[in-house]
Simulated assay, not measured.
Amino acid sequence: MFGADPIDPATGKLVDGGIERRTQQCFDNLFGVLAAAGLGPDDVVKVNVFLTDMNDFAAMNEIYAAQFSEPFPERTTIGVASPPLGSNIEIKLIAQRP
């Protein structure tokens, strides 16, 4: 299991933008780690999404759905007070080798 915040790898800072941009950055970071391990989105079996505002769920969900093919991995979305670095989202996932 490993997680990602919406950090721009080039700057080490949170990316600017709304929940859509930050959700995509989380997945870009996570999939970069997966690729380095020889894995991909189809190897993901569980995703945990932490949101500071559950009103962002629908927008996050659109980005989430575009990352995976069916059957989608199991997912839990949790409302939280304060993810690291003052972000409004953090995503963690579990992947396994086939």
Rank of each mutant, 00 (worst) to 15 (best):
I7G: 04
E62W: 00
A95W: 04
P71Q: 03
N48I: 03
A35T: 12
S87L: 07
S69G: 10
A58V: 10
Q67S: 09
D42Y: 05
E70N: 08
I78V: 14
F27Q: 02
G79Q: 15
A58C: 00
F31S: 01
A65S: 13
M60G: 01
D16L: 13
I19W: 07
A37R: 14
G40M: 03
L39C: 04
F72L: 14
T23M: 05
V45G: 03
N55D: 13
A4Q: 05
T11R: 06
D42H: 12
G79E: 15
G18E: 13
E20S: 10
E70F: 09
I94E: 12
G79F: 00
Y64V: 03
I91S: 02
F31N: 01
G38T: 07
G17I: 11
V45D: 09
R75S: 10
G79Y: 01
A36P: 00
T52I: 07
L34G: 02
E90S: 15
P6W: 08
A10F: 08
L14K: 09
M60I: 00
A95V: 07
S87D: 12
D43L: 00
E70R: 11
A4T: 05
D53M: 10
P9N: 08
L39M: 15
Q96V: 12
V33C: 00
M54V: 09
M54D: 12
L30C: 05
I7Q: 07
S87K: 06
I89F: 05
N61E: 12
V47E: 02
S82F: 03
D53H: 11
